[in-house]
Nucleic acid binder design. Structure first.
Length: 336
RNA sequence: AGGCCCGUAGCUCAAGUGGUAGAGCAGCCGACUCCAAAUCGGCAGGUUGGGGGUUCGAGUCCUCCCGGGCCUGCCA
């Protein structure tokens, strides 16, 4: 058992994961694989952020299903409840209370400048206030564990910066209590959509555009086989996005010699894409096999129990931070 | 609180004064291709936001409801 709170010597990591349902290989190679690695060096809190998911239109049953599906996939990928704390955000209500407190030290102008709000807002018919204040809840997610590191992609840097500003302002007004979190930028491979390799792999683009971790073998082979390769002319000596994507997958899944052999063939201009695709599919299937096996063994009640225990552990920490914050700003207790 | 506009296929939009709900893109299948792309051939796609009404007949007119946008007023 690991120690929590002040006795811990490992730096604290927080990452929030949107409950988008099952994971795809872009999620896995881009982020989740890294989460697994971080478990050993850091004290990790991994939160499935269902309260973030409700800021845009959603189906309640779908959300519940996706939240559990996400937990199952994360565990299958190798998140180990003995090493990290995996929990569902809404099961630790302290997050939302802290978010309200933090909203009071958040600049309206700062929120207006969030590019992700502008982008997501344009896609929505109805733009909720929650979508606007989303980054404040995100700041609370991080600060409530006094996390010092947050593994994120570049698109999230602006949000981390906001969390830092919020922490700084709170600290200067009410006394030092939140460490300023830092982004933990690890080089994450960007897996592109097989059907449109100029765009990042994503479920929202449609079924042709992603490969789920749980995808049946034949379907994986089919999607790799029909993956876009060369479209039109391209600069000399430069792989087209689709081909580069296949090579990336090969690098991530196949033994080095195999990968280098294909690179050499390509350099000599002797590469046929069909064998490349066959090989990529084969090693991808092989790589996903252990995940699939672990997933098959996970039973729902067991996963729910893990989440419940995770929430309990997270809450113990969150409650302390929240109490401290309430104390500082002068609410709750009426007699000094 | 009052007024105005809007809701049609997954998406963007069409359907003079009421008269068989269509197109483009996306999607699916096939041909071509080492695999793809492009191209070609084919297929599918809808309780027209919901209920009620007028009519021989309603996407279209009336009415109520739901949802979205805009203007004005009121309150601090």
């Amino acid at each position: 058992m690991i120690g929590f709170g002040s006795s811990s010597v490992k730096p604290i990591v927080l990452s929030g994961i949107q409950p988008t349902g099952t994971l795809h290989i872009g999620n896995y190679f881009g982020a989740v694989k890294n989460y697994v690695a971080l478990q050993d060096q850091y004290e990790c809190f991994y939160s499935i952020v269902d309260y973030h998911a409700i800021t845009v239109e959603h189906d309640p049953q779908e959300l519940r299903k996706n939240t559990l599906a996400m937990a199952i996939d994360l565990l299958a990928c190798g998140l180990d409840p003995k090493k990290c704390t995996l929990f569902v955000q809404s099961q630790v209500p302290e997050h939302t209370e802290l978010a309200w407190i933090l909203s009071a030290v958040t600049s309206y102008g700062d929120l207006q400048r969030m590019t992700q709000f502008k982008e997501k807002g344009e896609l929505q018919e109805f733009v909720s206030c929650g979508l606007f204040t989303y980054p404040v809840l995100q700041a609370a997610d991080i600060l409530i564990y006094k996390a010092s590191k947050v593994p994120v992609g570049e698109d999230q840097l602006q949000h981390i910066e906001l969390a830092r500003r919020i922490a700084r302002r709170f600290n200067s007004r009410f006394g030092e209590m939140f460490p300023e979190p830092e982004a933990l930028l690890t080089e994450a491979p960007r897996i592109m959509s097989p059907a449109d390799p100029t765009r990042k792999m994503s479920k929202s683009l449609g079924p042709k555009h992603y490969i789920a971790l749980t995808e049946p073998e034949e379907s994986i082979r089919e999607k790799i086989k029909t993956a876009v390769t060369d479209i039109g002319p391209r600069p000399e000596g430069e792989k087209s996005p689709g081909v580069a994507n296949l090579f990336l997958l090969l690098k991530l899944t196949a033994p080095r010699e195999i990968y280098e052999q294909f690179e050499a063939d390509y350099a000599k201009g002797m590469l046929k894409y069909e064998p490349l695709k066959r090989t990529v599919a084969e090693y991808l299937v092989k790589t996903l096999e252990p995940i699939r096996a672990r997933r098959a063994q996970l039973k729902e009640p067991e996963v729910k129990e893990i989440l419940y225990e995770g929430a309990k552990r997270a809450r113990a920490v969150a409650r302390k931070t929240l109490e401290e914050a309430r104390e500082r700003i002068g609410v709750g207790r009426l007699i000094a």
